[in-house]
Design a protein around this nucleic acid. Structure first.
Length: 597
RNA sequence: GCCGACGUAGCUCAAUGGCAGAGCAACCGCCUUGUAAGUGGUAGGUUACGGGUUCGACUCCCGUCGUCGGCUCCA
């Protein structure tokens, strides 16, 4: 079942409002730079709209305020949107001083691309929409009248650079992003959502919770895990390792560098060199930092003769890889230059392939669910016609095999045309977090190229040599990116089983420290991760700090608790559970940990 | 990589050409505390780095590095 691209938004009133607001904005910008503003395109997007301009100078935040103010005036003028159909020649004449529009008109006339650069079939009718003094090449739809736009529900957000037609060889334009809603209240809610996303930003929480840092001294895109973040990561890894063992994987380890010749044979230097760090020279030999683990796992496979009886083999490794990413794309934990994949390779006979794909897919879903993620979207990436090994015919069966597995799993999926890796098609799993943002984590890749390039064989029942199939898969993807997703999904309030500090003991006065340490020892023996706040601070201050660190349980101990062998339990939700005996608290904690909530 | 903004104490931010500051954190005390910040003091700086203009630069100019928002890219 292929997920339908939702046609609903495109047909909605909000879509028309945003599209119309983009036109109003373009009018305001053209008035700001009479005769000098060149307009490109301005479509509605999720949650808002943008418009691209070629202007004589960079826009400032103050300009945005002026533009926004002028937009309100235009809106208040109650101008109708009027559609008119033009011939290509008429349109060219009308937009004679707008080179970007001229280019768009060519696209419409010849067919191939529409006014947003999306591909279309055949030539289409050329229409323009006019409101007040502004006319734009546009297929619509628009609202009837600018009075349908609520001036109190429009906000310009920021300016950014954007290449004309998304092509880095072409001019860089200035893009103004804006948002528009039905009501001021909806706008407020949207702005609140943006603010909430900022509060949850893993880069901010990473610092506040002392999870990780990136040091200028070390280098961009290279992550330093601090003890707290390291603890969370270790728990994630330990859990995954145990699950892998149970699922029939074996663990391997491989080095960080390998000879140039290895990467030549694997095809990485042909297909992927621009993503690799420059080679190191050692005793006249070139070595490369590994961008992937697969060639090493293949070498392990090839270290002896394999029988059909040995298959499938499943090698798993938390392998740290290095990939060159252009400086402008680095982003916290989500786009880095060094990261650790929870990588594994299945080597199997052709007849085992469907089962191996099914297993990898199911395992992936199980693991992600364990960490609190529920909403998955699958993407099937097909052959990139510009960048693929083998022949198009060879790609057909593997692509079908992946598709069949998705059907069996009853996962809704979309096709990502041409997004495959050079060595085969893949399934990617993306998930939505608690703020409805999409994250790509899992990938399951069919590979029929490397086994041949690296000459892998097994001896079949017939005593002859056969070529195995290979699956590359990473479940959480990269530990770094997954940690980023985990931090943001839980807004830093990790479930108890993942919290680096599960409980903090808060002695009310110095005389309670001894008892706090005694309880701490007891809890540590039971396997909990505990801290004691021995600072000479007020209890209130200690609670505040523990709250800010998002510690699941705050255990307050004063005279009453010492006397009764108890702890007064406060949850980070603010809920006060009152005094519990140490063993009752342990039961409560064990339950919470067990449920992984 | 590209366009734009930015870089001042561990963090958040002041100082716009004339003595580099505050709050929090840290450290040393005092207070001994009952569910989100008790209180006094001390220390902390090559203002990212390198050059230039100037009597004088955190401030103006150039370059480099880095961060942020996008674009492009993303095995």
């Amino acid at each position: 079942m292929v997920a339908e691209k939702s046609g609903k938004y495109e047909e909605s009133e909000l879509y028309r409002i945003r599209h119309s607001a983009a036109h109003v904005m373009a009018q305001a910008v053209m008035e700001m730079f009479p005769g000098e503003a060149k307009i490109a395109i301005g479509p509605p997007i999720e949650d808002g709209f943008y418009y691209d301009f070629d202007l004589p100078r960079p826009l400032t935040p103050e300009d945005l305020e002026v533009i926004e103010g002028r937009m309100r005036e235009i809106i208040a003028g109650d101008h109708q949107y009027q559609r008119e159909v033009l011939s290509a020649d008429e349109a060219r004449e009308f937009f004679a001083d707008q080179p970007y529009k001229i280019e768009l008109i060519e696209g419409l006339e010849e067919g191939g691309t529409d006014e947003y650069g999306e591909s279309i079939e055949g030539p289409v009718e050329i229409s323009v929409f006019t409101h007040d003094t502004f006319t734009d090449l546009c297929r619509g739809p628009h609202v009837e009248d600018t009075s349908n736009i609520n001036p109190d529900a429009v906000r310009l957000l920021n300016v950014a650079g954007a290449y004309w037609r998304g092509d880095e060889q072409r001019p860089m334009l200035q893009r103004i992003y804006g948002t528009a809603w039905n009501t001021a209240d909806e706008l407020e809610q949207y702005l609140w959502r943006l603010e909430e996303a900022r509060r949850r930003d893993h880069r901010r929480l990473g610092r506040e919770l002392d999870l990780y840092s990136v040091s200028e001294g070390v280098g961009p895109g290279l992550i330093l895990w601090h003890p707290k973040g390291g603890m969370v990561r270790k728990i994630v890894e330990d859990y995954c390792r145990a699950e892998h063992l149970e699922a029939g994987y074996e663990f391997v380890y491989s080095p960080h560098i390998g000879k140039a010749n290895l990467w030549e044979k694997s095809g990485h230097l042909d297909w992927y060199q621009e993503g690799m760090f420059a080679p190191l020279e050692i005793e006249g030999q070139q070595y490369y930092l590994k961008p992937m683990n697969c060639p090493f796992h293949v070498e392990i496979y090839k270290s002896r003769t394999r029988s059909y009886r040995d298959l499938p083999l499943r090698y798993a490794e938390w392998g740290t890889v290095y990939r060159y990413e252009r400086s402008g794309v680095l982003h916290g934990l989500l786009r880095v230059r060094g990261f650790t994949q929870d990588d594994a390779h299945h080597f199997c006979r052709p007849d085992q392939m469907p089962e191996e794909i099914d297993m990898a897919l199911q395992f992936s879903l199980d693991i992600l669910r364990a960490f609190g993620f529920e909403n998955f979207y699958a993407y099937l990436s097909t052959r990139n016609p510009e960048k693929f090994a083998g022949t198009p015919e060879e790609w057909e069966a593997p692509t079908e095999a992946l598709r069949a597995s998705l059907e069996r799993a009853k996962l809704p999926y979309q096709i990502d045309e041409g997004q495959a890796v050079f060595y085969g098609p893949k399934i990617d799993l993306k998930l939505k977090d608690s703020l409805n943002r999409e994250w790509q984590l899992s990938t399951i890749q069919f590979d029929f190229i490397l086994p041949e390039r690296l000459d892998m064989t097994y001896v079949g029942e017939d005593g002859k040599e056969h070529r195995p199939y290979m699956i590359h898969r990473a479940l959480v993807g990269s530990m770094e990116r997954f940690m980023g997703a985990l931090i943001e999904h839980h807004a830093g309030s990790f479930p108890v089983w993942l919290s680096p500090v599960q409980a903090i003991l808060i002695p009310i006065a110095d005389r309670h420290i001894e008892y706090a340490n005694k309880v701490s020892d007891q809890l540590k023996k039971a396997g909990l991760r505990i801290e004691v706040d021995e600072r000479s601070e007020r209890m209130n201050a200690k609670i505040r700090d523990a709250q800010l660190q998002k510690v699941p349980y705050m255990l307050i101990v004063g005279d009453r608790e010492v006397e009764n062998g108890a702890v007064a339990v406060r949850l980070r939700s603010g809920e006060d559970l009152g005094a519990l005996s140490v063993s009752d608290f342990l039961n409560r904690a064990a339950e919470d940990i067990q449920s992984q909530k």
